[in-house]
């Protein structure tokens, strides 16, 4: 019986793969080719234009707030039974411990102070990236007329709804929801918070002498060639802080946006079975990007709080 089940699954999988090839590359024109736009699309609620990436970010926030509220309910109530975690509390404690241990290894005792910020980064980026994989993201929205000069599709009615067809026409889809990090503004905002907070932690740890890493007057007054080199290195450090913002923002944006494009393209080329592989890849990339953001921020905090000139 078990063998029959396995054979049935294999037959269905191969069948879907075959249909995928017939609808995709072998049968050009069955599937609607996606229209991909880099800036977030806007739809209107009354007269208010709403970017769809904002909806994605708000949904991620809502999921996090509700998830955390449910997961920490018994702890907040001061329930003594909360000492033995069950259900959602297990999950929340698992994530908390994972990030707390990670920061403990990188930042030592000081990791505790940075934990709220870095845990928020991790959870927000993770949920915002993974939420894109739910059906409806990038695929449900309002059908609007295309802008002049752009190719569009025809539409057809499906009950109370309308959908795009593969026939050329003058309509396009503006999705209601899009992953937050596929809009450069959100990774840029996260990058700014990360870099500004790195400076704040640096100043808290080293006081105003923290700024000597950027404008090293002491090195200049020391004189000599090494003094000048140290001063110029300080100026390069200043430049590197701005480069950090760009690298943080574009790394997250690039990975998530490329993931979205990849999913849309593969789903239009081979609509069944094959996209599963890429959904798995996107799960991996989403988690790695959240972790990379947190580890880079903590790495930069280590560099900031270690101070400059301690090795002289």
């Amino acid at each position: 019986m078990k063998k029959f089940g396995k054979v049935l699954v294999a037959v269905v999988a191969v069948g879907l793969l075959g249909v995928s090839f017939i609808l995709g590359p072998l049968g050009e024109g069955f599937v609607v080719r996606p229209f991909i736009q880099m800036p977030a699309e806007f739809f209107h609620i009354g007269a208010v234009p709403v970017p769809n990436s904002l909806v994605g970010a708000l949904i991620a926030d809502l999921v996090l707030i509700i998830g955390m509220a449910v997961g920490t309910r018994r702890i907040r109530a001061g329930n003594s039974e909360a000492l033995v975690p069950t259900g959602a509390q297990n999950f929340v404690e698992m994530i908390y411990e994972f990030i707390a241990d990670l920061l403990g290894n990188i930042l030592g005792e000081k990791g505790k102070k940075m934990l709220p910020l870095l845990l928020t980064f991790f959870l927000f980026i993770l949920v915002a990236n993974w939420i894109e994989l739910f059906p409806g993201f990038d695929s449900i929205g309002v059908i609007e007329h295309v802008h002049e000069g752009h190719a569009g599709n025809a539409i057809q009615s499906a009950g109370p709804f309308k959908m795009l067809t593969n026939e050329p026409g003058e309509y396009t889809l503006v999705p209601y929801m899009r992953a937050a990090a596929t809009d450069l503004n959100i990774p840029l905002a996260l990058a700014l918070v990360s870099v500004v907070m790195t400076q704040v932690f640096g100043i808290q740890e080293l006081g105003w002498s923290y700024f000597s890493r950027f404008i090293n007057i002491k090195a200049l007054t020391k004189g000599g060639m090494m003094g000048i080199i140290d001063f110029v290195v300080g100026l390069l450090e200043t430049l590197s802080e701005f480069i950090k913002i760009i690298s943080f923002a574009f790394r997250l944006f690039g990975n998530v946006f490329a993931g979205m494009v990849l999913l849309l393209v593969i789903s239009s080329l081979l609509p069944f079975m094959v996209p599963v592989v890429f959904y798995f890849l996107e799960l991996f990339v989403g988690a790695v990007q959240a972790l990379v953001f947190v580890m880079l921020t903590s790495g930069f905090i280590v560099v900031a709080i270690a101070g400059h000139g301690d090795d002289h």
């Binding site: 690298s247 690039g254 990975n255 580890m295 880079l296 560099v303």
Partner: peptide, 23 residues
């Protein structure tokens, strides 16, 4: 108890590579 500047730099470099590799 905070790790070294050297460790922080190695970590930042490696993690930055990991972040871009898949892409």
């Amino acid at each position: 108890g905070v790790p070294t500047l050297h460790t922080g730099a190695i970590l930042a470099q490696g993690v930055a590579q990991v972040g871009c590799l898949t892409l």
